[in-house]
Amino acid sequence: MAFLMAGVMALSACGSNDNEEGASPSTGTPASESPSNSSSASPSASPSDSPSPAASEVKLTKVSQVTNWFAEPEHGGQYAALSKGFYEEAGLDMTIQSGGPGISSTQIVASGKAEFGMGQADEILLARESGIPLVAVAAIFQKNPQGIMYHKGKYKDISELNGHKVYVGSGVAYWEYLKKAYKLDKVEEMKYTGSLANFVADPEAATQIYVTSEPFTMQQEGVDVEYFLNYDLGYKQYGNILYTTEDYLEKHPDIVKAYVEASIKGWNYYKDNSEEINKVMQEKNPDLKLEAMAYGAQAQEPLIYGGDAEANGVGYMSKEIWEGLQKQLVDIGILKSAEPIDQAFTNEFLPAK
Rank of each mutant, 00 (worst) to 15 (best):
M1L: 09
L4Q: 10
G7E: 07
G7T: 06
A10L: 10
S12K: 03
G15P: 02
G15R: 08
P25V: 13
P25F: 03
A31E: 08
E33L: 15
E33A: 12
P35M: 14
N37H: 13
S38F: 12
S39G: 14
S40D: 14
A41Q: 08
S44C: 05
P47W: 11
S48W: 10
S50G: 06
A54F: 15
A55V: 11
V63I: 15
A71L: 05
E74T: 14
H75Q: 13
H75K: 02
Y79H: 10
A81G: 11
L82M: 10
E88V: 00
G91R: 08
L92W: 10
I96G: 02
G99Y: 03
G100V: 05
G102H: 11
S104E: 07
I108N: 04
V109M: 07
M118N: 14
G119H: 06
Q120I: 07
L125S: 07
R128C: 03
E129H: 11
E129S: 06
F141C: 09
F141A: 05
Q142M: 07
Q142F: 10
N144C: 14
N144V: 12
P145M: 05
M149C: 11
D157K: 15
S159K: 15
S159H: 12
S170A: 14
S170L: 12
A173V: 15
W175Q: 06
K179H: 09
K179N: 05
K183G: 02
L184S: 07
M190W: 04
F199P: 02
F199N: 03
V200T: 15
D202H: 05
D202E: 13
A206M: 03
S213D: 13
T217P: 00
E221W: 05
V223M: 00
L229Y: 01
N230C: 09
Y238W: 01
G239C: 02
E246L: 02
L249K: 12
E250C: 00
E250S: 11
K251N: 08
D254E: 14
I255V: 15
A258V: 12
V260K: 03
E261F: 00
A262G: 06
G266F: 09
W267A: 03
N268R: 14
Y269A: 00
E276C: 08
E276T: 14
N278R: 03
N278D: 15
V280Y: 12
V280A: 08
M281E: 13
L290C: 03
M293I: 05
Y295C: 09
A297I: 07
Q298I: 12
Y305H: 04
G306T: 14
G307L: 04
D308W: 04
A311Q: 14
A311E: 15
N312I: 00
N312R: 09
E320C: 03
G324C: 04
L325M: 06
D331K: 10
G333E: 05
I334E: 06
S337C: 01
A338R: 03
A338C: 02
F345W: 02
F345K: 07
T346K: 02
N347Q: 05
